[in-house]
Each structure stands twice: as structure tokens, then as C-alpha cells.
């Protein structure tokens, strides 16, 4: 474990060096341990692939007992102590969420490019994409945007040479060994193969997202008609 300052209001706690499932599990375990209960002065914890970043208020850390000349060092020692003696927590089982996707057509504007790159017919690409149970490694880029690992190697493909300025919400994309869903109309460079009618970001709910880091995701192909029906319900 390595703890590094990120400016004067955050510490990065690194628990690994690769994007893989064991590291992800360590990140989730560190997050749970640091949340039960949060250390004094810690404002927010943000997990990523290999790190948990801990945002703090220096004044409140000082008030919690840190020496004025080494606030960050004192907080880092508290973090170490907590992670080396983690509280006994019940592990919550991972959720598996089914995401319906209408593949191809104008919902999957890059499907032809994926066919050309992978030398696979569209039907097989769609089959392969539905095959794995994906792991949500990270929510970032935009609210509710999941980076999901587990894409079959045969579908691996680089980013689009020129990103789109506005990707339609619900678009499902692939890049390298990951797949994603765009919750909002944002710029984006992933190769789009389909679209889900589900709303991934719901600002009036708490938590405001359909998918969270640690979730498992299964995609299921749907027709245009089913897309329209589900979209009306969403």
C-alpha cells in the first residue's frame, strides 16, 4: 500500500498497479474499511481502478488531533492503521444487473466499423458482446458512466480516430478490453454498437446511478419495439 498526497486536501491510497479483478476487490475492501466509520476530517472517498482517493479538510484533521506541522502524515498513519486492522464487515454480495440493448442500426453507428476491424459478422459481434458477465470497475468521465471490464478479446478495438461531439444517451460502446454506456449526451470516442433504453443517471435519486463500481452486468439484445416500450417506462 502506498499513500501519496494529491495537493493539500487529498491523499491517494494505492492498493495495486493493474486493472484486474483482485485489485478491484482490494480497492472495494479498502473503501469499505475507510467508511466504517469515516476518519475524522475526511470529506469524501473516491475509488478508482487501483486507488481510493480520500478528500479531507485540513482544519478538521487538525481538530481531530493531527500535529499542525504534519497534518497529511498523521492522516496517512490513521489510514494505514485502519487498513492494517480493518473492521470486521459483512461483505455485501455483488449485484447483477441486466441491461437491455438494441444493437445495430442507427443505435450502433460503429457496428460496421467493428465488423471491418474484427472481421466478424454483426450477428457474432452482438452474440459475443452479450456473452460475458462484465464487472463495473469505475464510474467516471460523466455522471453514471460505467467502465466495464471483461470484453472478449476478439472484440478488442481502439478508440475512434475522431471522437463524436455528442454521443446519444444510452449508447453502448466498446474500446480495447472494456465496454461502456453513455448516460448523457457528452463527447465521446468509444465505438458505438447499440443503445439501452435504461436511464443510467437519475439525479433525483440517491444514489443517483443505475450502476455502481463492483456491480456485474449482463447485456440482453432487444428489438426496436421492446426498446420503445422500455424507453416509455424509464
Amino acid at each position: 500500500m502506498q499513500i501519496t498526497p494529491l495537493g493539500d486536501t487529498a491523499l491517494i491510497v494505492a492498493v495495486g498497479g493493474a486493472i484486474d479483478e483482485p485489485t478491484h476487490q482490494r480497492v472495494q475492501a479498502a473503501l469499505r474499511a475507510l467508511e466504517a466509520p469515516p476518519l475524522s476530517g475526511v470529506v469524501e472517498l473516491v475509488p478508482a481502478y487501483t486507488t481510493v482517493t480520500l478528500f479531507y479538510d485540513p482544519l478538521r484533521v487538525l481538530a481531530a488531533g493531527a500535529p499542525a506541522e504534519d497534518i497529511a502524515g498523521w492522516l496517512a498513519a490513521q489510514v494505514r492503521q485502519r487498513l492494517e486492522n480493518p473492521p470486521q464487515l459483512e461483505e455485501t454480495p455483488a449485484r447483477t444487473i441486466e441491461v437491455p440493448v438494441c444493437y445495430g442500426g442507427d443505435f450502433g453507428s460503429d457496428l460496421a466499423a467493428v465488423e471491418a476491424h474484427t472481421k466478424l459478422p454483426a450477428e457474432e459481434i452482438v452474440e459475443l458482446h452479450q456473452d460475458p458477465e462484465y464487472l463495473v470497475y469505475l464510474i467516471g468521465f460523466s455522471p453514471g458512466f460505467p467502465y466495464m471490464g471483461g470484453l472478449p478479446a476478439r472484440l478488442s478495438m481502439p478508440r475512434r480516430a475522431s471522437p463524436r461531439t455528442a454521443v446519444p444517451p444510452g449508447s453502448v460502446g466498446i474500446v480495447n478490453d472494456q465496454t461502456c454506456i453513455y448516460p448523457l449526451a457528452t463527447p465521446g470516442g468509444w465505438n458505438l454498437i447499440g443503445r439501452t433504453p435504461l436511464r443510467l443517471f437519475r439525479p433525483l435519486e440517491d444514489p443517483p446511478v443505475l450502476l455502481r463500481a463492483g456491480d456485474r452486468v449482463k447485456f440482453r439484445a432487444i428489438t426496436r419495439e421492446e426498446f420503445a416500450r422500455l424507453e416509455a417506462l424509464a
Binding site: L6, G7, T9, A10, I12, G17, A18, I19, V46, A48, Y49, T50, T51, T53, F55, L138, G140
Partner: peptide
């Protein structure tokens, strides 16, 4: 680099 959280001022 592997993506991780960033902070204002970075």
C-alpha cells in the same frame, strides 16, 4: 497511467 481521482488545483 491508470485513471484515478483528481483534485481541484491539480
Amino acid at each position: 497511467l491508470i485513471s484515478s481521482a483528481v483534485n481541484a488545483g491539480v
